[in-house]
Design a protein around this nucleic acid. Sequence first.
DNA 1: GACCGACCTGCAAACGATTGCGTTAAGGTG
DNA 2: CACCTTAACGCAATCGTTTGCAGGTCGGTC
Lengths: 325, 325
Amino acid sequence: MSVTIRDVAQASGVHVSTVSRTFSAPHLVNAETRTRVLAAAEQLDYRPNRAARSLKTGRTNNIGLIVADLANPFFPPLIKAAQAAARRQDYHLFVADTGEDPVEEENLVLAFSKQVDGIVLCSPRLSNKALEKLSEQVSFVLVNRRIRGLTTVVMDVANGARAAMEHLVELGHRRVALVAGPAGSWTSAEIRKAVSEIPGLDTVVIGPNSPTEEGGIAAAPRVAEAGVTGVLAYNDLVAIGLIEGLEVLGVDVPGDVSVIGFDDSITGRLHRPKLTTVAMPAGDAGRMAVDLLIQSMSAATVLETHLVVRESTAPPRTSGDRGAT
Amino acid sequence: MSVTIRDVAQASGVHVSTVSRTFSAPHLVNAETRTRVLAAAEQLDYRPNRAARSLKTGRTNNIGLIVADLANPFFPPLIKAAQAAARRQDYHLFVADTGEDPVEEENLVLAFSKQVDGIVLCSPRLSNKALEKLSEQVSFVLVNRRIRGLTTVVMDVANGARAAMEHLVELGHRRVALVAGPAGSWTSAEIRKAVSEIPGLDTVVIGPNSPTEEGGIAAAPRVAEAGVTGVLAYNDLVAIGLIEGLEVLGVDVPGDVSVIGFDDSITGRLHRPKLTTVAMPAGDAGRMAVDLLIQSMSAATVLETHLVVRESTAPPRTSGDRGAT
DNA sequence: GACCGACCTGCAAACGATTGCGTTAAGGTG
DNA sequence: CACCTTAACGCAATCGTTTGCAGGTCGGTC
């Protein structure tokens, strides 16, 4: 049926072990023999059987990537970079999404565990305890979730949130809302904590919310009632939904209320008004996570974020002239 | 190290073959024995080794999904649905993107071929000949590319393009542009052909273009010079880029020029002006493609598209009153 | 000229599951 | 009671690689 190491051995007149070595330990085989074997392999179109290889070696050269929601524009750039990084080192990438469901998340980890060398877990919703237990079965690196003792790559959302709030303060806003993310979200908690520590700002927290456009729309009435002039949303999707919901309620952005998103996703970038947002290095995170996994290093990496000021923020009406000078 | 079928056999006092059968052919083993084996497996936390299984059986229970560009918002819903469909049948999904590069596309197919039971190839850029040759090495299903003899799932873009153009005609437009996609794109060719057959419409084709926002921006000057009042763009990203580019040139959408996109992606949905676009059943396509692959059926499936009229289209200035009645 | 590395290469036992075949026991039929 | 069928299970070969071990050859050194 398919061409095996044995066929190549026969064709080049050597033993199978020599063929094996020309691929996995070339320095152990004579240069001349090696070229002969490679020629035969080429001619027969031989391709090693990864199942057999991993059965013997215990390594699969596969890695798994689990995200909360593939359709959330935050993830595709991360996945793309992760895939490219994996491929560069001859690894293949399994991808799956949990639909924000912790149970499914655990099932996926378990399902992957016997078939990958490691897992990149993005924005996990499982408890610390559950994650620590799982880490005994399979090695993984966490993205945007920090747990002592586990390898992590996190983005500095706290700093991003501070920058966003400072931007609002500079524009003259004093009373602002934080439209938070889902309950189990580490980043949402980080943002919340960071924001609460900012002095001179009257902050009302609205949430938890679904991290989607619908979440933003649903939060709009509560934002409108809160009497705020500025909003930091959990992500771009929520920000956009919020803007849409506010529009329906007759509230103008950025005229009446300024809105800042999170992620700097393509959807936010192309939205009108152009979204002021906190840029997240999703691609860097994806790449680093798989590199750490493949080198099987343990580390706690922090990636910088930065504020991108565009058009969804402006001075509040009452102090408009101050910001317009 | 890890718990194998042998451990389970020992723990439950039966032969390994019986354990194997309780998992892969339960009806061949006595009910009582089966529960005993299952209990032991559960207690030992046994999980079958897929490498060993696929080595013996020749099947991997993996499938590969290759797309042109993971960051293009058209694909994530397709990937999400494909992954869900695969998972429902205990398959896992490899994902990779080619960056629109035919060479990388072929490399990926080859790299996957020994490790999957089949490949879903979305919007392939390879030649018919190359694809036919590859199909001898590994079975695949093509999405949005029709080739006789190969299993395909295509969306009826021709009909979508006709509906879009008819919409423009009804609004009073007579001279329109088609901002085409990349050179190797089957859908772009289909759209072009369909549009050329529409009577009573003066169509200028602009392209090929990169299927991205940048592609749209780059095409804007040529659209402005073409003296058209309506545009059908290759996809939402191009449409949005085009709108942005036109805006810079002082051309208003939809006031001066109407623009229609393709895909109905999230990015287009959230854009302002709300994008009139041809909705593509990406999720359906992803699901069907993996289902066809798993059932290893060959078929040529056509999925319907439909026009979604929103706010990026309006009557042309010169006959505005006609459309406004 | 005996001995010693350094290099290559062959041998064969694994890795963990699947599966055709053979054996045994139980039950049914005439 | 002899015979046959069926159900349940054990036996052992096998899938394609990897890798520790054991030669074998060759050139160089004392």
